[in-house]
Amino acid sequence: MARTILVAALLGYALFTLTTVLSAGVSATAKATGVLILPVVLVLQLVHSAPGSSRTPLHRKCLTLGIQALLTYLPLLMLHSSWATVSGYLAGSILLLLPPPVAWPLYGVVGLSMLAPSVLDGRPLVDGIRLAQTALLTGLVVYGLTRLTELITHLHAARGELARQAVARERLRFARDLHDLLGFSLSAITLKSELIHRLIPAHPARAMKEVNEVLGIAGQSLADVRKVASGFRDMSLQQEIKTARSMLDAAGIDVRAEVRLGVISPHVDTALATTLREAVTNLLRHSNASRCGIRAVQQDGLVRLVVENDGFDPAYRDPSPHGGSGLGNLHARMTAVGGRLESGQGQDGTFRLLAEVPVKKPPETTAEVRQIIFPPNGSAA
């Protein structure tokens, strides 16, 4: 639409010039010359007003501007003031193609030069001022409409790029959440299923209990996947600690968990819960740990989650071509909530993962801090 308006304005000025030339009291040869030259001037102006014209090489700009200047001033010798409106095209082209320190003085020179046709015609000075004003205003209109068209073009391109980036971010979010959810859930189902297979001959009652837990994990996984697809998924760190304890106990891993948390925001809670889930998934898949410590503490405006285990294997490499994105996902999550993530092997040979996130207490609210200490394979105290 903006481009159409610009072309319509340029055609309107050309039509106005054509009618002025045809009604002028000049010879037929002069009129024919004006009619033949006018389309060339219009084409040059369309080229100068085309998108990206300001980025053309300088020598081409000077060439086309020089031709337009010749076609603007030479016909004045025959057509006089009837041709003066064409100077508005030249004024606009100068503003479009040349740097501002050069363009604006030349723009003013073009306007002042339109005083000459009135002098040649022997007309009052006020007519020359009117022609100069018309040339300057026409140049501004041409310049403004062209720049507006370019701006709208860039705006549409930017909107398209933003839409593509939004789609890419949503795909990344979905892939990250799906990895975090299904990696944990499938590991849990596999581990529980292996435990059930061992328990069926000697402990059928406990095996049935584990089957019920597997069904619960599968149902929760389905609900989580649906939440991921809809874009809403809140998780609880304390709930994830209980789930992790159950899984690690089933794997025969000695667990000690300590939780001292107050009221934390849902996005921080979800980020830390996801971190714990990925840490436990990696522990079950990539280590042979016999002990695991989980510590979640809120102190000095920070929430710290520490997960340690003694089964780190420095020689392990994931053979899957699609593996290894878990820690990268966690780094992205921690960064998104203003936190940090550290992981690596300690001096005592244990593997330690630390997630630290700033948290602000709700205004005028004192957080009720609860302390839960899980002794090894014991009940909460």
Rank of each mutant, 00 (worst) to 15 (best):
L6C: 04
L6A: 00
G12H: 06
Y13F: 15
A14S: 04
A14P: 03
L15R: 09
L15K: 06
L15G: 10
L18K: 06
V21S: 00
S27I: 02
S27G: 13
A28L: 10
A30M: 09
V35K: 01
V35Q: 04
I37F: 04
L38C: 05
L42W: 11
Q45D: 07
Q45K: 07
H48P: 00
S49M: 01
A50F: 02
G52W: 11
S54M: 13
L58R: 15
L58V: 15
H59A: 09
C62L: 14
T64S: 10
I67A: 09
Q68K: 01
A69W: 04
T72Q: 04
L77F: 15
L79V: 07
S81W: 10
S81P: 01
S87G: 10
Y89N: 13
L90E: 11
S93T: 01
L95R: 08
L95F: 12
L98K: 07
P101Q: 12
W104N: 10
W104I: 13
P105Y: 05
Y107H: 04
G108E: 09
L112V: 14
L112P: 14
L115T: 13
V119E: 13
D121R: 03
G122S: 03
R123V: 12
G128S: 00
T134M: 09
L136F: 07
T138P: 02
L148D: 11
T153E: 13
H156I: 15
A157V: 08
A158L: 09
A163H: 14
V167P: 03
R171C: 06
D180P: 03
F184D: 01
S185R: 12
K192V: 12
L195R: 12
R206F: 09
A207P: 08
L215T: 14
G216K: 06
G219R: 13
S221M: 11
L222Y: 13
A223C: 09
A223P: 08
V225T: 05
R226N: 15
V228Y: 05
A229V: 05
S230F: 11
F232T: 15
D234W: 08
L237V: 01
S246N: 10
M247S: 07
A250Q: 07
E258H: 12
V259S: 10
G262A: 05
V263W: 09
P266K: 01
D269T: 02
T274H: 10
T275A: 12
R277L: 00
R277P: 00
A279S: 10
V280Q: 05
N282D: 03
L284S: 01
H286K: 02
A289Y: 02
S290H: 14
R291A: 05
C292H: 12
L305V: 00
P319K: 02
S320A: 03
P321C: 00
G323K: 10
G323H: 06
N329D: 01
R333D: 04
M334K: 00
V337I: 00
G339R: 08
G339P: 02
T350W: 12
T365Y: 15
Q371M: 07
I373V: 09
N377F: 14
S379M: 08
A381D: 11
A381C: 14
